[in-house]
Amino acid sequence: ILNMGEAYEHTLMVKNECFVYRLPPRPSNRGYRAADWGLDKPMWTGRMRVTTMNGNLTIKLLSNEGELFAEAPVAEYPGVAVESVTDSSRYFILRIINQQGQKAFIGTGFADRGDAFDFNVTLQDHFKRAKTEEIIEQAPVNEPSLDLGLKAGQTFRINIGNSAAKSKPKAKPASTGGLLLPPPPGAAASQPVASNDKSEWGEFSSASDNQWVQF
Rank of each mutant, 00 (worst) to 15 (best):
Pro25Ala: 15
Pro25Thr: 12
Arg26Gly: 04
Pro27Ala: 13
Pro27His: 09
Ser28Leu: 10
Ser28His: 06
Ser28Thr: 04
Ser28Gln: 06
Asn29Arg: 07
Asn29Phe: 09
Asn29Ser: 11
Asn29Pro: 02
Arg30Gly: 01
Tyr32Val: 13
Arg33Asp: 09
Arg33Met: 13
Arg33Ile: 07
Arg33Cys: 09
Ala34Pro: 11
Ala34Thr: 09
Ala34Gly: 12
Ala35Gly: 06
Ala35Lys: 11
Ala35Val: 12
Asp36Thr: 12
Asp36Lys: 14
Trp37Gln: 11
Gly38Cys: 15
Leu39Ser: 03
Leu39Phe: 10
Leu39His: 07
Asp40Pro: 03
Lys41Glu: 14
Lys41Met: 11
Lys41Phe: 15
Pro42Asn: 10
Pro42Asp: 13
Pro42Leu: 13
Pro42Thr: 09
Pro42Ala: 13
Met43Asn: 11
Met43Arg: 12
Trp44Asn: 02
Trp44His: 09
Trp44Asp: 06
Thr45Phe: 05
Thr45Arg: 13
Thr45Asp: 08
Gly46Ser: 07
Gly46Met: 08
Met48Ser: 04
Met48Arg: 00
Met48Val: 05
Arg49Pro: 01
Arg49Ile: 09
Thr51His: 01
Thr51Trp: 00
Met53Ser: 10
Met53Val: 13
Asn54His: 10
Asn54Gln: 13
Asn54Gly: 12
Gly55Thr: 02
Asn56Ala: 14
Asn56Gly: 14
Asn56Val: 15
Asn56Phe: 12
Asn56Arg: 14
Leu57Phe: 03
Leu57Cys: 13
Leu57Tyr: 00
Leu57Ile: 01
Thr58Asn: 02
Thr58Cys: 12
Ile59Met: 10
Ile59Cys: 07
Ile59Gly: 00
Lys60Asn: 15
Lys60Phe: 10
Lys60His: 15
Leu61Asp: 02
Leu61Ile: 11
Leu61Gly: 02
Leu61His: 15
Leu61Ala: 06
Leu62Trp: 11
Leu62Gly: 00
Ser63His: 08
Ser63Pro: 02
Asn64Thr: 06
Glu65Tyr: 07
Glu65Val: 11
Glu65Ser: 10
Gly66Asn: 05
Gly66Met: 08
Gly66Val: 05
Glu67Ala: 08
Glu67Asp: 04
Glu67Lys: 05
Glu67Arg: 03
Glu67Phe: 08
Leu68Lys: 09
Leu68Pro: 03
Leu68Met: 11
Phe69Pro: 01
Phe69Asp: 03
Phe69Ala: 08
Phe69Ile: 04
Ala70Thr: 02
Ala70His: 07
Ala70Asp: 06
Glu71Pro: 03
Ala72His: 00
Ala72Ile: 04
Pro73His: 11
Val74Ile: 06
Val74His: 00
Ala75Phe: 13
Glu76Gln: 13
Glu76Pro: 03
Glu76Ile: 11
Glu76Thr: 14
Tyr77His: 10
Tyr77Met: 00
Tyr77Asp: 04
Pro78Leu: 06
Pro78Phe: 04
Gly79Asn: 13
Gly79Asp: 04
Gly79Phe: 09
Gly79Trp: 09
Gly79Ser: 13
Ala81Glu: 13
Ala81Met: 08
Ala81Pro: 07
Ala81Asp: 14
Ala81Lys: 01
